[in-house]
Computed example of a mutant assay.
Amino acid sequence: MGIEIRKVTVLGTGVLGSQIAFQTAFRGFDVTGYDIDDAALTAARGRFDKLAATYREQVPGAGEAEATAAGIALSSDLGAAVSEADLVIEAVPEVLSLKQEIYEKLGKLAPERTIFATNSSTLLPSAIKDFTGRPDRFLALHFANQVWHFNTAEIMGTDDTDPAVYQAVVGFASAIGMVPIELHKEKAGYVLNSLLVPLLNAAMNLAEGGYAEPEAVDKTWRIGTGAPAGPFQILDIIGLTTPYNILMSGDATRQRIAQWLKDNYIDKGKLGIATGEGFYKYTA
């Protein structure tokens, strides 16, 4: 008998976690969102309501999007959130020690059958697997921001991942409307971020170094390549917190760029589209 995935818990209800939860529920799965406290869950409910409006406007057949939003269960009790989960998708901040800590707890609380998938953007699953208590049922499942539009799901296991588990997650990705991108071995950044991160870092280096303004960098990229968006527009979509965390784990040059990002944008509440302003201003 094959592995069945029907009940899904998403750990972390931030920008991307809330999208993953909503898309999964929209495709008919039983979804629970977990976050650390009631304030975070209240914010999550607001994100779901906004996603319902977005889906109605942008996704064919999304007339019942409000029902999708209302149907997502929310919990700040980790044990209760995962007690019946077939699959747990972890989307907590991109900090290795934080991910390791939550998997140590998760491994003791979730049923033995539960598959764990990290949405980590840059960290290798092999850096986390020993903390899960079930390395054969653990892998990476990486989504791009605006999952209803940029619908890739990159799937990357470790040497310990059970091939049947891997294929079950490939099938799940298809079932929720994603295009599965299968990686044959571990690669930091998967396919998408192996291409995207160097572009974003080069753009920030140009602006932080005083070579060109973000608008000029974006204009150059759009005109020169025909791309619909420049790197700073992409950063605003991603949200500036994740790039900041990634840069802070890098060398001295990357940490200097992270400090520039913090001083000029993050500390001023300019986190990207989600807050109405990042490198650009956005109307509601």
Score class of each variant (00 low, 15 high):
V10L: 04
L11K: 02
G17S: 08
F22Y: 10
T24D: 00
A25P: 11
G28H: 10
T32W: 02
T32E: 02
G33N: 08
Y34M: 10
D35C: 06
D35I: 11
D38T: 09
D38I: 12
A40V: 05
T42S: 11
A44H: 09
R45P: 06
R45H: 05
R47C: 08
T54P: 03
T54C: 04
R56K: 15
E57G: 02
G61Q: 00
G61W: 02
A62P: 10
A62F: 05
E66A: 12
T68C: 13
A69M: 11
S75P: 09
L78G: 12
A80T: 15
A80C: 03
A81M: 09
S83E: 12
E84K: 15
V88A: 09
S97K: 10
Q100W: 07
K108N: 12
A110K: 02
A110M: 07
R113I: 08
T114C: 15
T114Y: 04
F116A: 06
T118G: 04
N119V: 03
T122E: 13
P125A: 12
P125R: 10
S126D: 04
D136A: 15
R137F: 09
R137S: 14
F138L: 07
H142A: 10
F143I: 07
F143E: 00
V147G: 03
V147A: 14
H149W: 11
H149L: 15
F150T: 04
I155M: 01
M156F: 02
M156P: 04
T158I: 05
D160Q: 13
D160F: 08
T161F: 07
V165K: 01
Q167E: 15
A168L: 06
V169K: 03
G171K: 12
G171S: 15
F172T: 03
F172G: 02
A173L: 06
G177E: 03
M178Y: 06
V179N: 12
I181A: 00
I181L: 03
E182M: 13
K187L: 11
K187A: 13
A188Y: 04
G189I: 07
V191D: 00
N193P: 01
L196D: 01
P198M: 00
P198E: 01
A202T: 13
L206A: 15
P214C: 13
E215G: 12
A216P: 02
T220Q: 10
T220N: 14
W221N: 00
G224H: 07
G224Q: 05
P231Y: 09
F232I: 09
Q233Y: 07
Q233D: 01
Y244L: 11
Y244T: 04
N245C: 03
N245A: 00
N245D: 01
M248L: 14
A252L: 13
R256G: 14
I257C: 14
I257R: 14
K262N: 12
N264T: 10
I266S: 03
K270L: 10
G272K: 09
I273V: 15
E277M: 06
K281V: 12
T283Q: 11
A284Q: 03
